[in-house]
Amino acid sequence: MTPVVECVVAFLFGSVVGLLMQRSRFCNTAALRDAIMFKTYRNTKAMLMAMMILTLAFTGFMSLGAGHPMEFDVGLNTFAGLFLFGIGMVLAGACTVSTWVKTGEGNIGALWALIFTFVGMFLFSLVWSWNWWPPAPQVMTGQPNLPALQLGFANALTLQDRLGVPAIVFGLIQFAVLLAIYRAILRRERGQRVKHEQHQQEVAGHEA
């Protein structure tokens, strides 16, 4: 595939994603923030649904040697970076997706967040050029490198190669865990609804 075709495919994918996100008001930040702060799960359920479908499909295709899984070494920087990101997205009220989607809806605050995401990235490039950590992806070997706080590379495919068990088997286990979380949320929502109805009846009883 030529770079131009790649860019066209990516643009079409992004456009449909942007449209569906805008029409559904889905927000990744809300999926985490609302579950933590308000115990509401509208977005959390959607995120879990996507994760379940993707787990089955990605590990299924990886079992067959298809697809383009990420070659990604993991280190303590992975945890630290996403920790900072998690704080940032709640403060900004948007994540990487919703900054673009909300900007497209005319939200100047989201555009402001986007601008400072770029600024943050540029600032980090200056720091990286000074301390050279975390190691550049080109020098990552897939093996643990403890002095650089890197743990190496492992995914469903490396498990398949090492243990001789198809990647989809591990995918099914992860799917079952995600499904259990999804069902626990549904149960909790049912409980909240029952409580709400009881409360309403009590209020109606008092008023009568």
Binding site: L54, A92, F116, L123, A167
Partner: peptide
């Protein structure tokens, strides 16, 4: 918030989308 997101993405080499819809489903 924006600054922390930008710094965090570059420190981790990934963003939240890759986390939930890429790395996790690949069981990375």
């Amino acid at each position: 918030g924006g600054l922390l997101m930008g710094i965090g993405i570059r420190l981790a080499y990934i963003c939240n989308v890759s986390t939930f819809f890429g790395l996790l489903p690949e069981m990375n």
